[in-house]
Amino acid sequence: MVSKTEEEQVNRLESQVENGGGDAWDYLGLVRKLKLRRFDKVLQFGLSILNDPKQRSALGPQEWTLYEEVAIAAMDCQCLDVALESIKVLQKKFPGSKRVGRLEAMLLEAKGSWAEAETAYSSLLQDNPLDQIIHKRRAAMAKAQGNISLAIEYINKYLEIFMADTDAWRELAEIYVSLQMYKQAAFCYEELILSQPTVPLYHLTYADVLYTLGGLENLQTAKKYYASTIDLTGGKNSRALFGICLCTSAIGQLTKGRNKEEKENSELHSLSALALEKGYKQRNPSKHSLLTATLKCLKL
């Protein structure tokens, strides 16, 4: 995950390079480090370096990294001829390389030659069954073709081997949510919370999924996870504060005064509402009255 300061840093550098000020190589390094998907800029800035022999040779062995990055970015932009050119350079430098073979397979995929790409990936996997990137490409390819159930199957198989890959768990969770398979999504978030208990995002999204599922028990659990999100973020997460208000209001409606934890419920509700009021007053006063009206709808 990318923090706000990191994102601002990238954006600043991006516009500097755009205006001829900043260093394109620094920018590319940052994009690489933060694993961002800014393919149009990577292609544009990367090519400007590669097309200038002086800048290119200054990179030393990093030149080949850049060729690989430009090839992938070009595929993302559907500039397939640029991708092909870069791959050809790499083929010449590293004949028989599996890593270059992967790029060739990806180019087939980018062309939409699904069957050929599938064959290429399968043969690469035979040589190295633990190549994570190729496993992921196959799942992504299934998704690109609209075959979501196959994508789910691939990711599940992948997770049997690489259980600790949180990105893959997240991807699976998000697919389940998009199919409205909330129980399955909840399971994924439970796994994520178990493996990284201090990441607030997982607590928050788990609570969101439980609230979406509904029912008293789920609402009560959702409330607890919104509360832990608030705890982990020092009270700064407005999604979680809204979540508490939604939960307490829905629990109140379901139990209609028969709730044993009524006092705790209403206390938590007014505390969250108060925190939201304070936040809007400070940071967005023009929408403060709108917030008050919204909270009125969620009254206990």
């Binding site: 998000e174 949510v177 998009s178 999204t205 969101d208 979406t212 999604r239 939604l246 919204t294």
Partner: peptide, 18 residues
């Protein structure tokens, strides 16, 4: 994650009020 309910509910209430 457009399939999740809580953000949608808040958004619809606020938008309607406005």
């Amino acid at each position: 994650q457009i399939g999740l309910l809580p953000p949608l509910e808040i958004a619809l209430i606020m938008i309607e009020e406005y």
